[in-house]
């Protein structure tokens, strides 16, 4: 089995697909942390909301209606959260943030149960991406290739914005030293808001994209939380490169671990996390070197 080239191609694609989904979730979280020093465990709940909204909208507007509207809706939700809770808690220290975001998670899980019920929901893969594509000797689901492509497009766009535009330069300055950035006349508040909302939109997008592959359940936000946190911590907080590296490491270790070392699999990723933190206590590619 493992001598077959098809096996490696197929599992590599599986690993990439998982990596890209995690990348969409973790990039927002890590940049928000880099800028605002705020870890937001409720990020997973936004992902769940995205998936549920996509499921609801799919019945009305079709899959693509949901695909474009969900990130906007989740961004709007993020904006509301920002003004009611996040802004006032930004300087309140990590303890208060942990408490507030745990409170948010509790509320979000029950809110999804109240609105959408306890039963898992599923939505169909959009018609244009049904079926499989022959690729390097294997047949691979087109929709999964779409997820990989989408991840790469978002990565390219973010890289471009962060390295080539003025706002990107401001964000990088803010991650480096927000007080200095403020002294240089950058409107730090507005930048925080922008980054937070974009991060939320990406979480919503991840939910909408994941919905046809997975089942949509009330606890999906909590389930994805730990993998996302592992990704950003392995990668190093605050950096785009770190989010990419962390996502790839997680995706590949998880996928190949599952098929090659099944008995060790559930321990493997945690062992890796512990090892990274012991050797490099701030992750592999932290924003501030």
């Amino acid at each position: 089995m493992t001598t077959d080239l098809g096996f490696w191609v197929l599992q590599t694609l599986n690993a990439l697909q998982l990596s890209m989904l995690l990348f969409l979730l973790s990039v927002g979280l890590t940049v928000i942390f880099g800028l605002m020093h705020f870890v937001n465990p409720a990020h997973g709940s936004l992902y769940a909301f995205g998936a549920y909204m996509a499921a609801s909208l799919a019945g009305v507007l079709g899959y693509w209606g949901g695909f474009f509207l969900v990130p906007l809706a989740v961004a709007a939700l993020g904006a509301v959260l920002y003004f009611t809770l996040i802004r006032s808690q930004r300087r309140a220290g990590p303890m208060a943030q942990v408490l507030v975001t745990f409170g948010l998670i509790f509320v979000a899980v029950d809110a999804t149960r109240l609105i959408w019920g306890d039963l898992p929901i599923g939505i169909a893969i959009p018609a244009m991406f049904e079926g499989q594509l022959p690729l390097l000797g294997v047949e691979y689901p087109i929709y999964r290739l779409f997820i990989i492509a989408l991840g790469l497009v978002v990565l390219a766009a973010l890289t471009l914005v962060l390295t080539r535009t003025q706002i990107g330069a401001m964000i990088r300055a803010g991650v480096d030293n927000d007080q200095m950035a403020a002294c240089l006349g950058i409107n730090v508040e507005r930048m925080f808001f922008l980054v937070f909302v974009v991060g939320c939109a990406l979480a919503g997008l991840a939910g909408a994209v994941a919905a046809p592959v997975l089942s949509v359940t009330p606890d999906m936000g909590l389930q994805i939380l730990i993998p996302t946190l592992i990704v950003i911590v392995i990668g190093g907080l605050g950096s785009l490169k770190g989010a990419v590296a962390g996502s790839l490491i997680f995706g590949f270790v998880q996928t190949f671990g599952a098929v090659l070392l099944p008995t060790l699999n559930s321990v493997l990723i945690y062992a890796l996390l512990a090892a990274v933190l012991v050797i490099r206590p701030e992750g592999l590619l932290p924003a501030k070197g």
């Binding site: 408490l99 745990f102 948010l104 509790f106 509320v107 899980v109 029950d110 109240l114």
Partner: peptide
């Protein structure tokens, strides 16, 4: 859970 969550937020 939702009620407990709201209380947590209020405390903070």
């Amino acid at each position: 859970h939702a009620i407990v969550g709201l209380i947590l937020i209020a405390v903070v």
